[in-house]
Amino acid sequence: MNQTMNIFCKEFKDYFITPIAYIVISIFLLITGWFFFSTFFLYSQATLRGFFALLPFTFAFVIPAVTMKLFSEEFSAGSYEILFTLPVTHTNIIMGKFLAGTAFIIAMLIPTLAYPVAISFIGELDWGTVIGGYAGAIFLGAGYTAIGLFSSSLTRNQIIAFIIGASICFFLTLVGKMLFFLPENILGIAQYLSTGFHFQNISKGIIDGRNIVYFLSLIFIALYATWLVIDEK
């Protein structure tokens, strides 16, 4: 546990040592802010639905960019040899890095709290959906972080790690939006696989066990796959 914390602290600090964190956060805020507010006043409704509807898409390419370095950079610089010969287990390393990535996503979401606060001044905001939305965003972010960590463990090249991670995340995001094109007998499976479906359920403010189980199993599978890859190296 201690070792996991040590790795978590190092990785989390690492994000803010280089300018990458600030660039990624700025881009994320610009994109979500622009797409959300450009249509916000057309509906004249005090709701964050537009913001949360967009989140699976922005996350699908922002999160792999955040996580791509977690293993790839260590492989290419050789520092993994140092980390790996310290008295730590693979689980310590993977959990530390996963939690650091998730914490960074949470840090990235904090500035967006300005939206509900600002909106609450101009209309009646349903805070239940806001809380649900943020809880869903954290689950979604953690799920994509686990996928990004997995793709980072596959290669020493950060660009390739990003492309693999973004592809998996986009697939999971889009599979629920393309139900129209799919044969009827796999509709249920496709919908269940889709992150967007589960995320939307949570962000409606209804916290259902099944949606949480979905995200937890997504995280578990991705982290376990990472463990298998690391153990093979």
Partner: peptide, 27 residues
């Protein structure tokens, strides 16, 4: 204690922070 060939350290850390990280990892 192990020093790998050509000492691949964490390049973006300060020397003190790096040694402190290692010390923590050593318990």
């Amino acid at each position: 204690g192990y020093l790998p060939e050509s000492a691949p350290l964490y390049y973006n850390m300060l020397v003190y922070d790096y040694l402190d990280f290692i010390a923590r990892m050593q318990g």
